[in-house]
Amino acid sequence: MNYDDIEILFAEDSMEDATLTIRALNKSGFTNKLLHVKDGAEALDFMYCKGIYSERNPKSHPKLFLLDLKMPKMSGIQVLEKIKSDAEFKSIPVVILTSSQEDPDIAKCYSLGANSYIVKPVDSNNFFNAIKEMGMYWMILSQPAL
């Protein structure tokens, strides 16, 4: 698989959420190249070209991070912290996805430099709309200057 030119890096341990999210993005007309990773560790492997991503072009950076907070091995917040403390990556917008408004890490995410967060609604229509709006906002903002 060619890991270069990945525009959206999407870290999500839940296959269902990932499927629904990707579907929502696709249905909303986003054709951007998206890579779905299963946890935080894999996300960082991708960023730092480690493990299975050691072959990829380190100069190629995604335009948007979609980061689920609750993940095995390495949580979204750890990934966020790492990316935002790295000068090379800190300008990349990070959107946090969470299943709960009650997540105690939301406030921490903002302090670490997260650009936005989305509470994934149960209602599929609401979920679709939320992802669509998010995608539009951030992908359009992150268009490279012509």
Binding site: S14, E16, D17, L20, S99, S124
Partner: peptide, 16 residues
């Protein structure tokens, strides 16, 4: 909120 919602969301989403 987190873990119960996820499967319900999935049920809802898949049905959709």
């Amino acid at each position: 909120s987190h873990d119960l919602r996820a499967p319900i969301r999935a049920i809802n989403g898949y049905t959709q």
